[in-house]
């Protein structure tokens, strides 16, 4: 066989490795990554996304352009959102402010374009019979939480408020789903959790602590990011998507919709009673103020400093250049909502 014939497979392989980019003025699909644990449902902590998705608002907005919406429900929570962006598999995503901060500090090429929910309450529950009743009782115990999510800074802050550090407890890195099973099995003694605490409802665990009375900015929040490439290539599409989320935020921020929102949280698999109790005393207009206002940006800066101080990230970044309010401001003007939320 002639040598050039032998080289044909090599040539074919090289050609197959060539990705031909096709220029277009609009994407064929928008890929949105969001935490989710129950099949086909986003995490109960991602309420605005659920409101948007359940009502088909994104699909309606982009159907006339023939743009499909692809939803990636990652069980890896915030770390999964970051992984999807790092590998170019997502255009938009939302998760907690801590994983967003860690991802950006690690070099992700994203822009923070909108807030979501403010003041998420962190709960600590303990297995019944362990005798754990206070934060001080956690000393020497195995505490489950997922590193890389909002739970990580939360446990550090909660311990610090009570004169403890991570060295005083035994950290066990588990997802919410695995942590629930671990608490029952006895692998962990206590668990950081969101408001949905089925084990408490079942009497298997007891509430030890929650930070519901802290101000909104010092508790966890969620945010919406876009890849820099997508935002630069499709600014109008990005603005339209932000507009959809602002409309959802407007709906969620109204007190009259509280019951419907709690019903939506229950549909996500959360305990309805616990969902209702979680929002007692919470101002929905503050909680669902999605604007990247000064206090929000400052809280991201504070979080970054906290992460640096505690060795959770290796390097800082410029929060001011990460935050991009162009889409938010343009969408607000089109909606006539410039003066609706506090800024």
């Amino acid at each position: 066989m002639k040598r050039w014939i032998k080289m044909l497979p090599l040539l074919a392989a090289i050609l197959s490795m060539t990705v031909v980019a096709k220029a277009a003025d609009k994407p064929s699909v928008i890929r949105f990554v969001v935490p989710g644990y129950v099949p086909e449902k986003a995490s109960p902590t991602q309420l605005l996304f659920t409101v948007v998705w359940e009502q088909g608002l994104l699909q309606q907005e982009f159907a006339k352009d023939g743009i499909k919406i692809e939803r990636i429900l990652t069980k890896q929570a915030g770390p999964g959102v970051n992984e999807a962006f790092a590998n170019g598999k997502a255009d938009f995503g939302q998760c907690g402010d801590f994983p967003l901060t860690v991802g950006k500090a690690g070099g992700l090429k994203t822009k923070l374009i909108l807030g979501q929910e403010n003041g998420s309450t962190t709960y600590i529950i303990a297995r019944s019979g362990t005798g754990i009743r206070t934060i001080q009782d956690l000393r020497g115990k195995r505490i489950g939480y997922q590193k890389g999510t909002n739970s990580q800074p939360a446990i550090i802050k909660i311990l610090a408020l009570n004169g403890l550090t991570l060295n005083d407890i035994r950290s066990v890195n588990v997802t919410v789903a695995d942590g629930t099973a671990a608490l029952v099995a006895g692998t962990v003694d206590a668990l950081l959790s969101g408001y949905d605490r089925p084990l408490v409802h079942q009497g298997v665990a007891v509430d030890v602590y929650n930070n519901a009375k802290q101000d909104y900015d010092s508790r966890g929040k969620t945010g919406l990011i876009v890849s820099e490439e997508f935002a630069a290539k499709y600014p109008d599409i990005t603005k339209r998507l932000v507009k959809v989320f602002l409309r959802a935020g407007y709906y969620a921020s109204q007190e009259k919709n509280r019951a419907a929102l709690n019903a939506t949280r229950a549909k996500l698999g959360a305990n309805y009673t616990q969902a209702v109790q979680d929002w007692v005393g919470q101002d929905l207009k503050v909680k669902f103020n999605p604007l990247l206002k000064k206090s929000t940006v400052d809280s991201y800066k504070n979080l970054q400093q906290f992460a640096l101080k505690n060795g959770l990230i290796r390097q800082g970044f410029n929060v001011d250049t990460w935050v991009d309010t162009r889409f938010q401001d343009a969408a607000l003007a089109e909606l006539g909502l410039q003066n609706y939320w506090d800024r």
Partner: peptide, 22 residues
Amino acid sequence: LKSVRSQARADDWWPTTYQPFI
């Protein structure tokens, strides 16, 4: 990718990967 592979999906779905090599 863990984020894509371990999705909360109800159907028997699995992502694909293509890998030419020499």
